[in-house]
Design a protein around this nucleic acid. Structure first.
Lengths: 339, 339
DNA sequence: CTGGAGAGTTGAAATGTTTCATTAGGCGTA
DNA sequence: TACGCCTAATGAAACATTTCAACTCTCCAG
């Protein structure tokens, strides 16, 4: 009767001598079935090696048991920490987490979103390549619970969780100023990345509030936020005439900062005496760098956890209101910037 | 007629004035339907915003379109590179990839595997906490295509993809010997990890073949393969009496090596003059360390890609044979070990 | 005895696809 | 005109589950 097929509820029912409905009850509402029958059914399940077919469950029940996170860049540990936070929240809610990676390519992002829609996931968390892309509108319109992570969306017609980047920019520069640096660099780009723009904005604000001259905040744009770009920025820094050369550098993320750190040490400079370095994100490797890296910490796991809670609220609470959650960044001072 | 529901093939069929079967054909075998009808159906789909329900498809077709990778440790970039390799292969085969993370906890691993079974994924790739755990047997017995990644399984009743760790151990130590080090340390653990044992074995082999004394290969066991443990090993290293202190250290992975590097520089030693360091894996951050790290490279993405191909072969090819694929590691010499 | 409540169990309907045997219609040939 | 062939389209069955109204017992109060 089974001849090779993987067993179904029907087979279990037959083996236990009960009806389909009872087997289903054992799985979903064990309290309504008597101890005797429950035991019998469970034994049959174990003997047959029954594994519930999730597709059929989902088709009938209309509800899936998975969340999804579409991350922006798998090579940046920051996003894995965010994912970890989401995972914990999902675990608490007894859901699975589907992790996809767009690798900053809009086409991949669309492919992933399309698949997730087909899977009817309960909710989607995403750090989008472009938070204003129209295909995100599509999702909201479709009614799929959606939370933007680590970005904000202009229209604000969906939830988002991010960090106050303007404040982050202020904190980083303020720290360098406090350490007595008269001329500092801001390293990051492309400026089209909303975060870079905001961190730079914060940097400029506080710099002027402290009464410094705008031309003493040197902006070194990069093409991406990678270690390699950090190294290249380091080379450009050395190339500046000594009297225009900053003594402190604030990088828009830790990968850039690590690249800069490496290039600086490699070319014989002493950190922080010749150059003080401040990063952003406070990834695991920041503390583990040769000269431990000062960084503006984002609460990475918290970000993920909060995002997951928002998406769950949207999925389950009928009078859900969209929220723009903003976390406060915080300075973690280490050797790379302290005299 | 739709009143809020998400549209189904039936709705599309009605809107386009054709039958269910025709709509299905448009999606799955467009060549059998006439251009006129196809167009009409496609228009209807677009207008209704139809998205195929994957659960229903899978239920009927009996086949899912996803692979899964259960990774061992989300905080180690090595596994993300492996995952990336799998993802590329999955992309080529037009499959989705489900990424789970056991975080080295056997219970989580089991939960994930159970879920994946319920989802009826096409195949499972896993870097298991313990490659000999009985629940992996279960999977093979069930007939789920299974590939062990970066480990080998004694019984060899399933495919695996790994790197020749004994050879890796030889390569690392041979390099240190060539650089003229007379006394070296092996740092890694716990030894119950098969890989650690094999790398150590290779290290010992070559050390003796080169005519060195066994007691000049100092083993410093660690409790885990993390940056923190690397730092702690560094402290123990300093604690050794000068005449017993190694001048070169071979770490069982890069995280350990980075921790050791940091601790060494922090306590004023010069790398590589006071201590030469060799890591294992060659993760992205190895090259980006303050003193670029010499490492025994594993072909990380290739590992993933090959594993995915094996699992696909097992899933689709009826006369699939299980294989134990072994890649050859290779030395990448950088500043941390070169005088 | 009868009636009713409550606990436990049943079985049919429903979910959204794909598949496949069947039918319809058009066209050329005998 | 009758026949066969080919291309398109059809619609019912099947997939594995959940749900729910209906049914059967058992037990106890009246």
């Amino acid at each position: 009767m089974l001849n090779g097929r993987t067993p179904s509820v029907k087979d279990v029912a037959a083996a236990a001598g009960v009806s389909l409905g009872t087997v289903s009850n054992v799985m979903n509402r064990p309290e309504v079935v008597s101890a005797r029958t429950r035991e019998r059914v469970e034994r049959a399940m174990a003997e047959l090696g029954f594994v519930r077919n999730e597709s059929a469950r989902q088709l009938r029940a209309g509800t899936s048991r998975t969340l999804a996170y579409v991350m922006l860049d798998g090579s940046n540990p920051f996003f894995h920490d965010v994912a970890q936070g989401i995972e914990y929240a999902a675990e608490d809610a007894d859901l699975s987490l589907f992790i996809c990676n767009s690798n900053s390519r809009p086409e991949r992002e669309e492919v992933h979103l399309d698949r997730l829609l087909q899977q009817r996931v309960q909710g989607i968390l995403i750090t989008p390549v472009n938070p204003d892309a129209p295909h995100l509108d599509e999702l909201s319109k479709r009614g799929v619970p959606l939370v933007i992570v680590d970005r904000v969306r202009r229209g604000a017609d969906c939830c988002s969780v991010s960090v106050d980047d303007v404040l982050g920019g202020r904190i980083g520069i303020e720290h360098l100023a406090e350490q007595g640096h008269e001329r500092v660099a801001f390293i990051g780009g492309p400026e089209s990345l909303g975060q870079v723009g905001e961190r730079l904005q914060g940097a400029r604000e506080i710099w002027e509030e402290l009464g410094r001259r705008p031309e003493d905040l040197v902006v070194l744009p990069t093409e991406a936020m990678t270690v390699a770009e950090g190294r290249s920025a380091g080379e450009r820094l050395v190339g500046l005439p000594a009297r225009r050369r900053p003594t402190g550098a604030f990088c828009a993320n830790d990968l850039l900062a690590l690249g800069l750190l490496q290039q600086s040490i490699g070319s014989g400079r002493h950190i922080p005496d010749d150059l003080a370095i401040v990063g952003f994100d406070d990834i695991e490797f920041a503390a583990a760098a040769a000269v431990p890296l000062t960084s503006v910490r984002q609460p990475r796991q918290e970000l993920g956890r909060a995002a997951a809670q928002l998406v769950l609220d949207e999925a389950t609470n009928p009078d859900h209101r969209h929220q723009q959650l903003s976390f406060t960044p915080e300075l973690v001072a280490r050797a790379s910037s302290r005299r």
